[in-house]
Design a protein around this nucleic acid. Structure first.
Lengths: 206, 206
DNA sequence: GCAGGATGTCTAGCGTTGCTAGGATTTAGT
DNA sequence: ACTAAATCCTAGCAACGCTAGACATCCTGC
Protein backbone atom coordinates (compact mmCIF):
# COMPACT_ATOMS: atom_id res chain seq x y z
CA UNK A 1 0.00 0.00 0.00
CA UNK A 2 2.99 2.22 0.24
CA UNK A 3 5.31 1.56 -2.65
CA UNK A 4 2.50 1.89 -5.09
CA UNK A 5 1.45 5.29 -3.91
CA UNK A 6 5.07 6.25 -3.74
CA UNK A 7 5.46 5.45 -7.39
CA UNK A 8 2.34 7.45 -8.10
CA UNK A 9 3.72 10.41 -6.26
CA UNK A 10 7.00 10.08 -8.07
CA UNK A 11 5.31 10.03 -11.42
CA UNK A 12 3.23 12.97 -10.40
CA UNK A 13 6.27 14.99 -9.40
CA UNK A 14 7.91 14.06 -12.65
CA UNK A 15 4.94 15.27 -14.62
CA UNK A 16 4.87 18.42 -12.54
CA UNK A 17 8.38 19.26 -13.62
CA UNK A 18 7.58 18.21 -17.16
CA UNK A 19 4.88 20.86 -17.35
CA UNK A 20 7.22 23.53 -16.04
CA UNK A 21 9.94 22.60 -18.49
CA UNK A 22 7.53 22.44 -21.39
CA UNK A 23 6.15 25.87 -20.54
CA UNK A 24 9.60 27.37 -20.36
CA UNK A 25 10.75 25.78 -23.60
CA UNK A 26 7.62 26.84 -25.40
CA UNK A 27 8.04 30.40 -24.13
CA UNK A 28 11.68 30.46 -25.11
CA UNK A 29 10.87 29.15 -28.56
CA UNK A 30 7.83 31.26 -29.41
CA UNK A 31 7.30 33.78 -26.62
CA UNK A 32 4.91 33.73 -23.71
CA UNK A 33 1.94 34.81 -25.78
CA UNK A 34 2.20 31.44 -27.51
CA UNK A 35 2.00 29.58 -24.20
CA UNK A 36 -1.66 28.71 -23.97
CA UNK A 37 -3.08 25.99 -21.79
CA UNK A 38 -4.13 24.05 -24.85
CA UNK A 39 -0.76 24.12 -26.55
CA UNK A 40 0.95 23.32 -23.30
CA UNK A 41 -1.34 20.38 -22.65
CA UNK A 42 -0.74 19.10 -26.16
CA UNK A 43 2.97 19.39 -25.62
CA UNK A 44 3.01 17.32 -22.45
CA UNK A 45 0.61 14.88 -24.12
CA UNK A 46 -2.15 15.26 -21.58
CA UNK A 47 -5.46 17.06 -21.66
CA UNK A 48 -5.96 20.54 -20.34
CA UNK A 49 -7.50 19.69 -16.96
CA UNK A 50 -4.41 17.84 -15.75
CA UNK A 51 -2.60 21.19 -15.75
CA UNK A 52 -5.12 22.38 -13.23
CA UNK A 53 -4.57 19.37 -11.03
CA UNK A 54 -0.96 20.50 -10.71
CA UNK A 55 -1.33 24.28 -10.71
CA UNK A 56 -4.02 26.69 -9.67
CA UNK A 57 -3.96 28.38 -13.03
CA UNK A 58 -1.78 29.72 -15.75
CA UNK A 59 -0.23 32.30 -13.46
CA UNK A 60 0.88 29.55 -11.11
CA UNK A 61 2.63 27.81 -14.00
CA UNK A 62 4.43 31.01 -14.92
CA UNK A 63 5.35 31.44 -11.28
CA UNK A 64 6.81 27.95 -11.19
CA UNK A 65 8.89 28.71 -14.27
CA UNK A 66 10.00 31.95 -12.65
CA UNK A 67 11.01 30.19 -9.46
CA UNK A 68 12.98 27.73 -11.52
CA UNK A 69 14.60 30.69 -13.21
CA UNK A 70 15.65 32.17 -9.90
CA UNK A 71 17.42 28.96 -9.08
CA UNK A 72 19.31 29.16 -12.32
CA UNK A 73 20.03 32.84 -11.84
CA UNK A 74 21.37 32.31 -8.34
CA UNK A 75 23.67 29.57 -9.57
CA UNK A 76 24.74 31.69 -12.52
CA UNK A 77 25.59 34.67 -10.36
CA UNK A 78 27.27 32.58 -7.72
CA UNK A 79 29.49 31.00 -10.32
CA UNK A 80 30.45 34.40 -11.69
CA UNK A 81 31.19 35.78 -8.27
CA UNK A 82 33.41 32.90 -7.27
CA UNK A 83 35.22 32.93 -10.59
CA UNK A 84 36.33 36.47 -9.88
CA UNK A 85 39.80 36.59 -8.46
CA UNK A 86 38.90 38.36 -5.25
CA UNK A 87 35.77 39.81 -3.72
CA UNK A 88 35.06 43.49 -4.01
CA UNK A 89 34.61 45.53 -7.12
CA UNK A 90 35.89 42.85 -9.48
CA UNK A 91 33.37 40.39 -8.14
CA UNK A 92 30.61 42.96 -8.40
CA UNK A 93 31.53 43.63 -12.00
CA UNK A 94 31.52 39.94 -12.78
CA UNK A 95 28.15 39.40 -11.13
CA UNK A 96 26.66 42.41 -12.88
CA UNK A 97 27.78 41.25 -16.28
CA UNK A 98 26.53 37.77 -15.52
CA UNK A 99 23.18 39.23 -14.54
CA UNK A 100 22.84 41.15 -17.78
CA UNK A 101 23.98 38.20 -19.82
CA UNK A 102 21.31 36.09 -18.17
CA UNK A 103 18.67 38.69 -18.98
CA UNK A 104 19.65 38.99 -22.62
CA UNK A 105 20.32 35.34 -23.27
CA UNK A 106 17.18 34.03 -21.56
CA UNK A 107 14.67 36.78 -22.30
CA UNK A 108 11.58 34.63 -21.90
CA UNK A 109 12.76 33.26 -18.59
CA UNK A 110 13.70 36.72 -17.39
CA UNK A 111 10.29 37.96 -18.41
CA UNK A 112 8.60 35.31 -16.30
CA UNK A 113 10.75 36.26 -13.34
CA UNK A 114 10.38 40.02 -13.48
CA UNK A 115 7.69 41.22 -15.82
CA UNK A 116 4.80 38.81 -16.08
CA UNK A 117 2.37 38.76 -13.17
CA UNK A 118 3.22 35.91 -10.81
CA UNK A 119 2.18 34.71 -7.39
CA UNK A 120 5.70 34.93 -5.98
CA UNK A 121 6.19 36.83 -2.77
CA UNK A 122 9.21 39.10 -2.80
CA UNK A 123 10.91 40.92 -0.01
CA UNK A 124 8.88 39.34 2.74
CA UNK A 125 9.10 36.52 5.24
CA UNK A 126 7.79 33.89 2.84
CA UNK A 127 10.16 34.87 0.06
CA UNK A 128 11.39 31.67 -1.59
CA UNK A 129 15.05 30.94 -0.95
CA UNK A 130 16.26 31.23 -4.57
CA UNK A 131 15.02 34.80 -4.77
CA UNK A 132 16.87 35.79 -1.65
CA UNK A 133 19.92 33.85 -2.82
CA UNK A 134 20.05 35.76 -6.08
CA UNK A 135 19.80 39.04 -4.27
CA UNK A 136 22.47 38.01 -1.79
CA UNK A 137 24.94 37.45 -4.58
CA UNK A 138 24.97 41.19 -4.99
CA UNK A 139 25.06 41.87 -1.28
CA UNK A 140 28.01 39.56 -0.83
CA UNK A 141 30.06 41.55 -3.29
CA UNK A 142 29.86 44.57 -1.05
CA UNK A 143 32.09 45.29 1.88
CA UNK A 144 30.69 43.78 5.10
CA UNK A 145 31.45 46.98 6.97
CA UNK A 146 29.09 48.89 4.76
CA UNK A 147 25.98 49.07 6.87
CA UNK A 148 23.96 50.00 3.86
CA UNK A 149 24.91 47.00 1.78
CA UNK A 150 21.31 46.04 1.25
CA UNK A 151 20.48 49.48 0.00
CA UNK A 152 23.44 49.46 -2.35
CA UNK A 153 22.46 46.03 -3.61
CA UNK A 154 18.89 47.15 -4.19
CA UNK A 155 20.02 50.11 -6.22
CA UNK A 156 22.53 48.14 -8.26
CA UNK A 157 19.99 45.45 -8.95
CA UNK A 158 17.40 48.04 -9.90
CA UNK A 159 19.77 49.80 -12.25
CA UNK A 160 20.71 46.53 -13.93
CA UNK A 161 17.09 45.52 -14.19
CA UNK A 162 16.28 48.91 -15.66
CA UNK A 163 18.81 48.74 -18.43
CA UNK A 164 17.97 45.09 -19.07
CA UNK A 165 14.28 45.70 -19.53
CA UNK A 166 14.55 49.05 -21.30
CA UNK A 167 17.02 47.76 -23.84
CA UNK A 168 15.14 44.49 -24.13
CA UNK A 169 12.01 46.33 -25.18
CA UNK A 170 13.89 48.74 -27.41
CA UNK A 171 13.36 51.77 -25.20
CA UNK A 172 17.07 52.45 -25.09
CA UNK A 173 19.49 51.33 -27.79
CA UNK A 174 20.59 47.72 -27.41
CA UNK A 175 24.16 48.75 -28.05
CA UNK A 176 26.26 50.22 -25.33
CA UNK A 177 25.18 47.91 -22.54
CA UNK A 178 28.82 47.38 -21.64
CA UNK A 179 29.36 51.07 -21.14
CA UNK A 180 26.30 51.38 -18.96
CA UNK A 181 27.32 48.55 -16.68
CA UNK A 182 30.79 49.98 -16.38
CA UNK A 183 29.34 53.31 -15.42
CA UNK A 184 27.08 51.77 -12.80
CA UNK A 185 29.91 49.81 -11.26
CA UNK A 186 32.31 52.68 -11.34
CA UNK A 187 29.89 55.19 -9.89
CA UNK A 188 27.57 53.34 -7.57
CA UNK A 189 29.98 50.81 -6.24
CA UNK A 190 33.03 52.97 -6.09
CA UNK A 191 35.14 51.18 -3.53
CA UNK A 192 36.03 54.46 -1.90
CA UNK A 193 32.36 54.82 -1.11
CA UNK A 194 31.67 51.27 -0.08
CA UNK A 195 32.89 51.58 3.48
CA UNK A 196 32.19 52.91 6.91
CA UNK A 197 31.76 56.29 5.35
CA UNK A 198 28.24 55.20 4.68
CA UNK A 199 27.50 54.19 8.21
CA UNK A 200 24.61 56.08 9.54
CA UNK A 201 22.63 56.06 12.69
CA UNK A 202 19.52 53.91 12.66
CA UNK A 203 17.02 55.52 10.39
CA UNK A 204 13.31 55.26 10.34
CA UNK A 205 12.46 53.50 7.13
CA UNK A 206 8.80 54.33 7.31
CA UNK B 1 -18.93 71.32 -48.72
CA UNK B 2 -16.10 72.24 -46.46
CA UNK B 3 -17.48 73.34 -43.12
CA UNK B 4 -19.51 70.21 -42.87
CA UNK B 5 -16.64 67.87 -43.32
CA UNK B 6 -14.65 70.04 -40.98
CA UNK B 7 -17.25 69.55 -38.31
CA UNK B 8 -17.16 65.83 -38.98
CA UNK B 9 -13.43 65.78 -38.63
CA UNK B 10 -13.65 67.81 -35.45
CA UNK B 11 -16.16 65.43 -33.95
CA UNK B 12 -14.05 62.51 -35.00
CA UNK B 13 -10.95 63.96 -33.38
CA UNK B 14 -12.94 64.63 -30.25
CA UNK B 15 -14.14 61.07 -30.11
CA UNK B 16 -10.62 59.88 -30.76
CA UNK B 17 -9.44 61.66 -27.66
CA UNK B 18 -12.49 60.47 -25.77
CA UNK B 19 -11.50 56.87 -26.38
CA UNK B 20 -7.97 57.49 -25.18
CA UNK B 21 -9.16 59.25 -22.06
CA UNK B 22 -11.71 56.56 -21.31
CA UNK B 23 -9.09 53.85 -21.70
CA UNK B 24 -6.74 55.64 -19.35
CA UNK B 25 -9.40 56.30 -16.75
CA UNK B 26 -10.63 52.74 -16.87
CA UNK B 27 -7.10 51.45 -16.48
CA UNK B 28 -6.41 53.80 -13.60
CA UNK B 29 -9.63 52.78 -11.90
CA UNK B 30 -9.52 49.02 -12.36
CA UNK B 31 -6.21 48.11 -13.96
CA UNK B 32 -5.37 47.32 -17.56
CA UNK B 33 -6.70 43.79 -17.38
CA UNK B 34 -10.14 45.37 -17.00
CA UNK B 35 -9.73 47.39 -20.17
CA UNK B 36 -11.45 45.24 -22.76
CA UNK B 37 -12.74 46.46 -26.07
CA UNK B 38 -16.29 45.76 -24.97
CA UNK B 39 -16.08 47.67 -21.72
CA UNK B 40 -14.27 50.51 -23.42
CA UNK B 41 -16.91 50.71 -26.15
CA UNK B 42 -19.65 50.71 -23.55
CA UNK B 43 -17.90 53.50 -21.71
CA UNK B 44 -17.65 55.80 -24.71
CA UNK B 45 -21.23 54.85 -25.62
CA UNK B 46 -20.41 53.40 -28.99
CA UNK B 47 -20.20 49.90 -30.29
CA UNK B 48 -16.99 47.93 -30.50
CA UNK B 49 -16.22 48.42 -34.21
CA UNK B 50 -15.91 52.20 -33.90
CA UNK B 51 -12.79 51.61 -31.81
CA UNK B 52 -11.29 49.89 -34.81
CA UNK B 53 -12.13 52.80 -37.09
CA UNK B 54 -9.91 54.94 -34.88
CA UNK B 55 -7.18 52.48 -33.93
CA UNK B 56 -5.67 49.44 -35.53
CA UNK B 57 -6.27 47.37 -32.44
CA UNK B 58 -6.08 47.32 -28.69
CA UNK B 59 -2.31 47.75 -28.70
CA UNK B 60 -2.70 50.96 -30.67
CA UNK B 61 -5.09 52.29 -28.04
CA UNK B 62 -2.60 51.47 -25.30
CA UNK B 63 0.10 53.15 -27.38
CA UNK B 64 -2.01 56.28 -27.69
CA UNK B 65 -2.51 56.35 -23.93
CA UNK B 66 1.22 55.87 -23.48
CA UNK B 67 2.04 58.70 -25.86
CA UNK B 68 -0.36 60.93 -23.95
CA UNK B 69 1.45 59.84 -20.82
CA UNK B 70 4.81 60.87 -22.22
CA UNK B 71 3.43 64.33 -22.85
CA UNK B 72 2.34 64.55 -19.24
CA UNK B 73 5.63 63.14 -18.02
CA UNK B 74 7.67 65.60 -20.05
CA UNK B 75 5.64 68.49 -18.68
CA UNK B 76 5.90 67.10 -15.16
CA UNK B 77 9.67 66.72 -15.35
CA UNK B 78 10.16 70.07 -17.03
CA UNK B 79 8.21 71.78 -14.29
CA UNK B 80 10.28 70.09 -11.62
CA UNK B 81 13.53 70.99 -13.33
CA UNK B 82 12.66 74.64 -13.72
CA UNK B 83 11.38 74.87 -10.16
CA UNK B 84 14.80 73.88 -8.92
CA UNK B 85 16.85 76.90 -7.94
CA UNK B 86 19.71 76.27 -10.28
CA UNK B 87 20.66 73.59 -12.78
CA UNK B 88 23.03 70.85 -11.83
CA UNK B 89 22.63 68.30 -9.10
CA UNK B 90 19.69 70.03 -7.44
CA UNK B 91 17.78 69.99 -10.70
CA UNK B 92 18.66 66.37 -11.25
CA UNK B 93 17.41 65.49 -7.82
CA UNK B 94 14.17 67.35 -8.42
CA UNK B 95 13.63 65.67 -11.78
CA UNK B 96 14.40 62.24 -10.37
CA UNK B 97 11.94 62.63 -7.54
CA UNK B 98 9.35 63.96 -9.95
CA UNK B 99 9.91 60.92 -12.15
CA UNK B 100 9.41 58.50 -9.30
CA UNK B 101 6.39 60.39 -8.05
CA UNK B 102 4.87 60.13 -11.49
CA UNK B 103 5.51 56.39 -11.58
CA UNK B 104 3.98 55.75 -8.17
CA UNK B 105 1.05 58.13 -8.48
CA UNK B 106 0.02 57.09 -11.97
CA UNK B 107 0.88 53.38 -12.00
CA UNK B 108 -1.52 52.44 -14.78
CA UNK B 109 -0.29 55.20 -17.02
CA UNK B 110 3.31 54.32 -16.27
CA UNK B 111 2.57 50.71 -17.08
CA UNK B 112 1.23 51.66 -20.50
CA UNK B 113 4.33 53.70 -21.18
CA UNK B 114 6.95 51.23 -20.08
CA UNK B 115 5.66 47.74 -19.50
CA UNK B 116 2.76 46.89 -21.75
CA UNK B 117 3.59 46.07 -25.36
CA UNK B 118 3.05 49.11 -27.55
CA UNK B 119 3.73 50.18 -31.12
CA UNK B 120 5.85 53.15 -30.04
CA UNK B 121 9.28 53.49 -31.55
CA UNK B 122 11.96 54.41 -29.07
CA UNK B 123 15.49 55.54 -29.58
CA UNK B 124 15.21 55.86 -33.33
CA UNK B 125 14.59 58.48 -35.99
CA UNK B 126 10.81 58.23 -35.78
CA UNK B 127 10.75 58.49 -32.02
CA UNK B 128 7.77 60.70 -31.08
CA UNK B 129 8.77 64.07 -29.69
CA UNK B 130 7.34 63.63 -26.18
CA UNK B 131 9.51 60.59 -25.60
CA UNK B 132 12.62 62.42 -26.56
CA UNK B 133 11.50 65.45 -24.56
CA UNK B 134 11.12 63.36 -21.42
CA UNK B 135 14.54 61.88 -21.86
CA UNK B 136 16.05 65.28 -22.52
CA UNK B 137 14.85 66.55 -19.18
CA UNK B 138 17.43 64.27 -17.65
CA UNK B 139 20.09 65.15 -20.17
CA UNK B 140 19.58 68.85 -19.55
CA UNK B 141 20.33 68.43 -15.88
CA UNK B 142 23.84 67.28 -16.69
CA UNK B 143 26.78 69.51 -17.39
CA UNK B 144 27.03 70.36 -21.10
CA UNK B 145 30.75 69.70 -21.04
CA UNK B 146 30.16 66.11 -20.12
CA UNK B 147 30.50 64.38 -23.44
CA UNK B 148 28.78 61.33 -22.04
CA UNK B 149 25.65 63.10 -20.89
CA UNK B 150 23.45 60.76 -22.89
CA UNK B 151 25.06 57.73 -21.33
CA UNK B 152 24.65 59.21 -17.86
CA UNK B 153 21.03 60.04 -18.59
CA UNK B 154 20.38 56.52 -19.84
CA UNK B 155 21.80 55.00 -16.71
CA UNK B 156 19.97 57.35 -14.38
CA UNK B 157 16.75 56.78 -16.20
CA UNK B 158 17.30 53.03 -16.14
CA UNK B 159 18.04 53.04 -12.44
CA UNK B 160 14.94 55.06 -11.68
CA UNK B 161 12.84 52.84 -13.90
CA UNK B 162 14.27 49.81 -12.17
CA UNK B 163 13.39 50.90 -8.67
CA UNK B 164 10.01 52.16 -9.87
CA UNK B 165 9.02 48.89 -11.43
CA UNK B 166 10.60 46.59 -8.87
CA UNK B 167 8.96 48.36 -5.97
CA UNK B 168 5.73 48.73 -7.89
CA UNK B 169 5.50 44.99 -8.30
CA UNK B 170 6.64 44.29 -4.75
CA UNK B 171 10.00 42.87 -5.73
CA UNK B 172 11.79 45.30 -3.47
CA UNK B 173 10.17 46.89 -0.42
CA UNK B 174 8.03 49.90 -1.27
CA UNK B 175 9.59 51.77 1.61
CA UNK B 176 12.95 53.40 1.25
CA UNK B 177 12.48 54.85 -2.20
CA UNK B 178 13.77 58.17 -0.97
CA UNK B 179 17.02 56.61 0.18
CA UNK B 180 17.51 54.84 -3.12
CA UNK B 181 17.02 57.97 -5.17
CA UNK B 182 19.39 59.87 -2.94
CA UNK B 183 21.97 57.16 -3.39
CA UNK B 184 21.59 57.21 -7.16
CA UNK B 185 21.92 60.96 -7.33
CA UNK B 186 24.83 61.09 -4.94
CA UNK B 187 26.74 58.29 -6.63
CA UNK B 188 25.94 58.38 -10.30
CA UNK B 189 25.57 62.09 -10.74
CA UNK B 190 28.23 63.23 -8.38
CA UNK B 191 29.07 66.68 -9.68
CA UNK B 192 32.74 65.98 -9.31
CA UNK B 193 32.26 63.25 -11.87
CA UNK B 194 29.97 65.09 -14.22
CA UNK B 195 32.69 66.92 -16.12
CA UNK B 196 35.42 66.69 -18.67
CA UNK B 197 36.92 63.92 -16.60
CA UNK B 198 34.58 61.67 -18.46
CA UNK B 199 35.66 62.72 -21.86
CA UNK B 200 36.93 59.82 -23.79
CA UNK B 201 38.07 59.13 -27.25
CA UNK B 202 35.55 57.70 -29.68
CA UNK B 203 34.78 54.18 -28.70
CA UNK B 204 33.57 51.30 -30.74
CA UNK B 205 30.04 50.69 -29.55
CA UNK B 206 29.73 47.28 -31.05
C1' DG C 1 -37.98 67.57 -53.92
C1' DC C 2 -35.85 63.43 -54.75
C1' DA C 3 -33.10 59.43 -56.29
C1' DG C 4 -28.36 57.49 -55.53
C1' DG C 5 -23.98 57.07 -53.73
C1' DA C 6 -20.97 57.63 -49.94
C1' DT C 7 -20.35 57.58 -45.08
C1' DG C 8 -21.00 56.09 -40.61
C1' DT C 9 -22.69 52.78 -37.19
C1' DC C 10 -24.49 48.56 -35.31
C1' DT C 11 -25.78 43.58 -34.91
C1' DA C 12 -24.06 39.27 -35.07
C1' DG C 13 -20.61 36.07 -35.14
C1' DC C 14 -15.80 33.82 -35.75
C1' DG C 15 -11.90 31.80 -33.62
C1' DT C 16 -9.30 31.57 -29.39
C1' DT C 17 -8.52 32.23 -24.54
C1' DG C 18 -8.51 30.44 -19.35
C1' DC C 19 -10.98 27.44 -16.79
C1' DT C 20 -14.44 23.72 -15.06
C1' DA C 21 -18.33 20.33 -14.59
C1' DG C 22 -19.48 15.66 -15.14
C1' DG C 23 -19.00 11.31 -17.07
C1' DA C 24 -15.94 7.46 -18.54
C1' DT C 25 -12.15 4.52 -17.54
C1' DT C 26 -8.74 2.57 -15.12
C1' DT C 27 -6.84 1.10 -10.75
C1' DA C 28 -6.62 -0.44 -5.77
C1' DG C 29 -8.28 -2.94 -1.68
C1' DT C 30 -11.08 -6.42 0.38
C1' DA D 1 -14.72 -10.74 -8.26
C1' DC D 2 -16.77 -6.55 -6.71
C1' DT D 3 -16.90 -2.00 -4.73
C1' DA D 4 -14.81 2.29 -4.22
C1' DA D 5 -11.57 5.58 -5.19
C1' DA D 6 -8.43 7.85 -7.89
C1' DT D 7 -7.40 9.46 -12.58
C1' DC D 8 -8.22 11.36 -16.89
C1' DC D 9 -10.81 13.18 -20.89
C1' DT D 10 -14.75 15.10 -23.54
C1' DA D 11 -17.48 18.87 -23.87
C1' DG D 12 -18.70 23.28 -22.87
C1' DC D 13 -18.98 28.17 -20.57
C1' DA D 14 -18.08 32.98 -20.50
C1' DA D 15 -15.11 36.41 -22.11
C1' DC D 16 -11.53 37.93 -25.21
C1' DG D 17 -9.86 40.66 -29.74
C1' DC D 18 -11.47 41.43 -33.99
C1' DT D 19 -14.40 41.59 -38.46
C1' DA D 20 -18.05 40.88 -42.12
C1' DG D 21 -22.14 42.44 -43.71
C1' DA D 22 -26.58 44.62 -43.01
C1' DC D 23 -28.83 48.86 -41.71
C1' DA D 24 -29.30 53.74 -41.23
C1' DT D 25 -28.01 58.38 -42.17
C1' DC D 26 -26.37 62.13 -44.65
C1' DC D 27 -24.65 64.81 -48.62
C1' DT D 28 -24.69 65.59 -53.53
C1' DG D 29 -26.49 66.46 -58.26
C1' DC D 30 -30.34 66.79 -60.91
Amino acid sequence: MSTISERRERERAHRHQLIITAARELAEAEGWEAVTTRRLAERVEYSQPVLYSHFNGKDAIVSAVALDGFNQLAAHLSHARQAAAEPGQAALRAVSHAYLAFATERPALYQAMFILPTDLKFASAETPAPLRASFDEFVNCLHPDNERRELFAEVIWSALHGIAVLSGSGRIPPDGQEERVDLIIAQIADTRQDRQRHKRGPRSRT
